[in-house]
């Protein structure tokens, strides 16, 4: 129940704030643009490398972050709990690990700026120059 209320509140809050989600990579990354599906394959563990063969490391926000729920909803059409269950299945099977979770967007941006293999998502905002946008996800599906 609390979760539902929180989710509704998050959605109302994010109206203007999270108008668009930006998928970002290190500026040195040779990948210039990614399809939504390619983003999904990376984040859902299907692909462990960029289409050009360069290995990728997905970065995620902490569970319960409104942006995270929004991101996955737009990306997979599933809610956060479903996505977590999906990962739980894979983790249980072994050898698979979900994207590494970081505390907030700034930490994410900092990590992407530092790690050339990293890929993460943030709300539309001003970004440092060693970070580039590969996909813009519309706020509505």
């Amino acid at each position: 129940m609390a979760k539902v209320i929180m989710l509704i509140a998050a959605l109302i809050f994010s109206g203007q704030l999270q108008a668009e989600i930006l998928v970002i990579v290190n500026a040195q990354n040779s990948v210039s643009a990614l399809e939504k599906k390619q983003v999904m394959d990376l984040f859902m563990g299907r692909a462990s490398a960029f289409p050009n063969g360069q290995s990728a490391e997905t970065l995620d926000l902490k569970t319960g972050t409104p942006l995270r729920a929004h991101f996955y909803k737009i990306l997979t059409g599933k809610n956060e709990a479903q996505v977590d269950a999906y990962w739980a299945t894979l983790i249980f099977a072994g050898r698979m690990s979900p994207p590494k979770q970081l505390v907030d967007e700034q930490t994410l941006i900092a990590e992407v700026a530092r790690n050339t293999e990293a890929i993460a998502y943030v709300t539309r905002q001003a970004l440092p120059k060693n970070v580039k946008i590969v996909t813009e996800l519309p706020s509505h599906e």
């Binding site: 859902m44 563990g45 299907r46 099977a93 072994g94 050898r95 698979m96």
Partner: peptide
């Protein structure tokens, strides 16, 4: 399992 090609699963 098929989606991610996870052999263990």
């Amino acid at each position: 399992a098929a989606y991610v090609g996870n052999r263990e699963l």
